[in-house]
Design a protein around this nucleic acid. Structure first.
Length: 495
RNA sequence: GGUCUCGUGGCCGAGUGGCUAGGCAGUGGUCUGCAAAACCAUGUACAGCGGUUCGAAUCCGCUCGAGACCUCCA
């Protein structure tokens, strides 16, 4: 099996990935809170783990990929006293909370489908795991690591640290510093320590979403669901946990504290955090009002956008950077990606038509080696903390040879049969299966296109250039171009 | 205020002590009825100032600039 190195937030080092069980990987990614539309920043995180999922499978792992849907417990605003995000939206729109959940879950799934994401193996919801969460709260109270206060239950951070815990180890924070900096927040009076976080919240009568519990009517704290669901589907300890950098503290820190307390083992072996998407250098976020909805991008309907960009263009754009770097969103960058993506896409069409023909031409060892190194280089790049940017650079090297053969500038036999077949097979595999890119326009009826090209040939041999130009114009109107090559006439998507 | 990250050629974006990343745009060429495409060629890049080193964009220090987290956010 090929090597995969992962930058582990816990150790701040790139480490060689070794799974708990040979050949199998358990991966958990914090999914969205479904109280509004998914925006592009969300997409970047899920894209990273989609590619990781694909890559792990490609190199031979069986992967169980769990990505949750948060449909309760995530509060609005500061601290632990805000309104439930979903409950708030339900009131605003005068619908049932579960209607809010359904609407935005559907939206989330639609968006992911447009970006060609694979479905996770399990997609659990917080409301579907209330019993597990209540049991976990009981367990934590029994262990003396949580206490009840006014119908709410809080996790006791000081106790946790006294018993050998290390709250802050993931985000590199020191408990004392945190204590000194904590602002005065509402609801703090219920807590023994301002850093303690709610694992069960007492619901006020007007709170829409509430369930019975040993502590009265209430609802689970946000951090708890991930601990319960990851343990349930992946075990007390599992391989990879991912999410956006902004979840590192406090969400993931709390998950570690809960998981360690509940199961006696630190829950996650490799923590991965994706960096933020920025717009003009600032984090894209809903609260700053600079976030794009995918739909706006696809239609170009946004003040900051010059034109529409297709889902695959955006997917490719994001893959051109490494997930731990911030990525800045701009029209110029997107346009560059659009063109680059179409070139690779045309290469995909071409490579599928190429087949090996033996000839007298001797092998060109230099070119052969160049192709082999590009293929190997792609695997190495992805295996190096998922460096898709470098992987794509190798894909362009492969594209060059594909184009050369297509243009009759290079004979396939110069590469040798094995290398030729590898080039063909891997280009398709990298493009479609690992990077998850695909053709997105419906090809017009091939026979019509071919008929047009036959006419083109005829007009051209009769030197009726006005007719020839008309056919070119027709193709151009449909975002295509006629490729008038020495040895054949073909079409391609306009770049 | 605390913790941390980043500053790469016109644009985007990898890399990280000595070896051409890559893409887009530009320029020249091959090809072409003309184009397009493709291929070939082409760029004195690493914020500034010091230091360590045979050698630094890469390590260290300082300065300037940008950003993230510390409070809901992927």
């Amino acid at each position: 099996m090929r090597e995969l190195k992962i930058f582990n937030t816990l150790t701040r080092n790139k480490e060689v990935f070794t799974p708990l069980t040979e050949g199998y990987v358990g991966m958990y990614v914090c999914g969205p809170t479904v109280y509004s539309n998914a925006h592009l920043g969300n997409v970047r995180t899920f894209l990273t783990f989609d590619v990781l999922f694909r890559f792990l499978r490609s190199i031979g792992y069986k992967v169980r990929y769990v990505r949750n849907i948060t449909d309760v417990g995530h509060l609005v605003g500061d601290g632990d006293e805000g309104e439930d995000k979903i409950g708030k939206m339900a009131k605003l729109e005068q619908i049932e909370p579960m209607e809010v959940v359904q609407r935005y879950t559907n939206d989330f799934h639609d968006v992911l489908r447009q970006f060609n994401f694979l479905s996770p193996s399990v997609e659990p919801t917080a409301t579907g795991h209330l019993i597990e969460q209540i049991e976990a709260v009981k367990d934590l109270i029994e262990k003396g690591l949580a206490y009840e206060s006014n119908g709410s239950v809080y996790f006791d951070i000081n106790k946790y640290n006294e018993q050998g815990g290390n709250y802050g180890k993931l985000s590199g924070r020191i408990l004392e510093d945190l204590l000194n900096e904590t602002r005065e927040l509402d609801g703090q009076s219920e807590k023994r320590n301002p850093l303690d976080f709610a694992i069960w919240k007492n619901a006020s009568p007007e709170h829409i979403m509430q369930w019975p519990s040993p502590w009265g009517m209430g609802f689970p704290g946000w951090h708890l669901e991930c601990s319960c669901m990851s343990a349930k589907y992946l075990g007390d300890q599992f391989d990879i946990h991912g999410g956006g950098m902004d979840l590192k503290f406090p969400h993931h820190e709390c998950e570690i504290a809960q998981g360690t307390s509940l199961n006696g083992v630190s829950p996650v072996r490799y923590w991965m955090h994706t960096n933020m998407l920025t717009v003009n250098g600032q984090k894209m976020s809903k609260s700053l009002g600079n976030s794009f909805l995918p739909a706006q991008l696809f239609t170009g309907d946004h003040d900051l956008l010059d034109q529409a960009y297709s889902p695959m263009t955006v997917r490719f754009f994001m893959l051109q950077s490494q997930y731990r770097s911030t990525l800045d969103f701009s029209n110029d960058a997107l346009k560059g990606s659009q063109k680059a993506f179409r070139r690779l896409l045309n290469g995909l069409r071409i490579v599928k038509t190429l087949s090996y023909v033996s000839s007298e031409e001797p092998t060109d060892e230099k070119k052969k080696k160049n192709v082999e190194e590009a293929i190997e280089g792609f695997y190495e790049a992805l295996g190096d903390d998922l460096n898709t940017a470098v992987g794509i650079a190798h894909l362009f090297t492969m594209l060059k040879y594909i184009n050369m053969m297509y243009m009759n500038q290079l004979n396939p036999s110069a590469l040798g049969e094995n290398t030729f077949n590898e080039l063909k097979e891997k280009y398709i595999h990298f493009f479609e299966d690992i990077l998850g890119l695909k053709e997105e326009q419906n090809e017009s009826d091939a026979s019509v296109l071919n008929g047009m090209l036959e006419l083109y040939k005829e007009y051209k041999s009769n030197r009726q250039f006005d007719k020839v130009d008309q056919i070119r114009a027709y193709f151009k109107d449909n975002n295509m171009v006629v490729k008038d090559l020495k040895h054949r006439i073909d079409w391609a998507w306009e770049e």
